[in-house]
Amino acid sequence: MTWILGTFRKDFLWLYFPGLAALVLSFFVIMPSPSTAFWIYTFVALQFFDSGHVYTTLWRTYLNPEERRRRRAYIFAPVFFFLLFWAWAYFQMPGLAACIIYATIFHNVRQFFGIHKWYQRLNGNHVKWADYFLYFNCFMPFVIAHFRTGPVWNYDYSEQDIFRFPNEVIYKTFLIFYFVGITSWLVYEILLFAKRREGNRFLSIAFPTVLYGVCFICGRTAAEIVFPLVIAHGVSYFGLMSLALSKTQKRFSNLQIGTAVVLLTALGFGAIEGVFEEYYLDLSNATLAPLIALYLTPLFCHYYFDAFLWKKTHPESIKIYANVSGH
């Protein structure tokens, strides 16, 4: 069985273990209180992994002359996003926080989908219905969370900034539908397993299924809902970015050097953004519109650039997916 980073051990350590560890820390170890341990956990989750991973994309875009020359988007996208969010914040149009949350969740799920497709290429076998189940297993808990009567994802945002429709009847109805879907997926995988054993691809669905299900359906605080998601996403991105850099740029041919550069970039920019968030970020303050736009532009450029940087149609994909059979 073939693995993205070469071995099951490496894939597990980079793509799966951090999210599972974060679930344990969030639900059973770190309590949401003003303790030193919680402060450190918050910094690692939100600044280092979440905010920091955004800026590691610089090494495949602006800091890569060959890639920089390929697209005018690297010039126009920052201008577009800056003007968009400046106007949004200045005129105090509703839904800015919701836009950030929904774009982040979509981006997060797309990364899991990309990993899932990567394993399919490694296996030389496309499983169409598995794609649908992955999206269902991830997005359905997020939808269900909108109807929970308890606390939901509200870290950094007020309750008024988030679309919520607490309703016990709808919540329970959707919950039943969700468990029927999960059961259908498990039956589907059992039938597939009888024909072809693909533990790597199964793991790429099972992990986000557990992560999203536990966080959005069982989570009671922002730490329990948000932190495992951003840690799983950020650490996975570090591993995949390090692999991509080692395969596409000679200066990072040593994987250890590439990994160190990625981690240091995330740590430096994450710390800077953490200070910015603490002292200058207030989405409800129209006078801070330029700073809000400056804060959101790198984030949405990251979302946009990633949409084509990891596609198999990208010129670098032939190197990144060089060990992929059949495609």
Rank of each mutant, 00 (worst) to 15 (best):
E189P: 00
A244N: 10
S242R: 04
I217A: 02
G258P: 06
A223D: 13
G181W: 00
Q160T: 12
L243Y: 07
D161P: 06
L264D: 02
F269V: 09
I217W: 02
I182R: 06
F216S: 03
L245E: 03
T259V: 07
G181L: 05
V261H: 01
Q256T: 13
T209N: 10
E189V: 07
E224L: 00
L191C: 09
A222Y: 13
V230K: 11
I170E: 09
V226S: 11
S204Q: 07
R251D: 14
K172S: 12
F238C: 07
D161W: 02
L263T: 07
I217P: 04
L229P: 05
I225P: 10
S246F: 02
G239F: 06
L192N: 11
A244S: 13
T265E: 14
I162E: 01
L229S: 05
L175M: 12
V180C: 01
V230P: 07
E224I: 02
I257F: 05
E168M: 12
F179D: 11
K195V: 06
Y188Q: 08
F163V: 12
Y188H: 11
G213Q: 07
N200F: 11
V187K: 02
Q249C: 00
R197Y: 14
K250L: 07
C215W: 02
E159N: 12
F207M: 13
A194K: 15
L263Q: 01
L263W: 03
F179V: 05
A222D: 15
L245P: 04
V210G: 02
R251N: 14
V187W: 09
L267P: 08
M241S: 07
F179P: 12
L264P: 08
Y157D: 00
S184D: 04
V210C: 09
R196P: 00
F269L: 15
Q160R: 11
K247H: 05
H233E: 09
R164D: 10
G234L: 00
H233D: 10
L243A: 01
F174V: 10
P228R: 05
V235R: 00
